[in-house]
Amino acid sequence: MIKDTIKKALQELFPVPEPVVAETPPTEAAEGEETKAKKTVKEGPRVNGVIERDYNACGYHLDAQVDPGELLAAVLILDKAGFFIESITGVDWIKEDQLEVIYDFSRYDFDLCRVVIRTRTPRTAPKVPTISKIFSGANWHERETHDFFGIKFEGHPHLIPLLLPEDADFHPLLKDFKP
């Protein structure tokens, strides 16, 4: 099963995998070292790690949260395994003062496995490395996310507004956006 291979490969991104007492399903399989302290905070953002989700309830199989720094490594794993990019989008978690970038990947073959990779970046200076060097199709998705959320994709070749007007200086999907 491709799902297990990918899960294992993604888990290796987190240097010190520590089995954690699972709360309720979704079971947490691994977590990053630096976020260990945060995990007790229930309201706070999710800890980094790979979670296997119930497909019927969520619509995807693997849900990995990584740091922006590890993003490229995670995406490379998927690229090597033959995934294609579905979409990139953002979510504004204004309460936690963070912006989340969500990457969707899926496969062309019948070994069904949808992988979601998330990464969080502070709201004040949102910066994420671009993956358009790995997946050329990420180019527009990243530009769109930049339009809507103002997230800066570092290293992006052409980060100008795509869907919004060329001179747009607003980011309409931020929760504090006033038209």
Partner: peptide, 16 residues
């Protein structure tokens, strides 16, 4: 966080 993909006339359409 929920995702659903369907096959429309043009390809895989997804809603998150």
């Amino acid at each position: 966080d929920y995702y659903q993909a369907v096959e429309t006339a043009r390809g895989s359409f997804g809603i998150r």
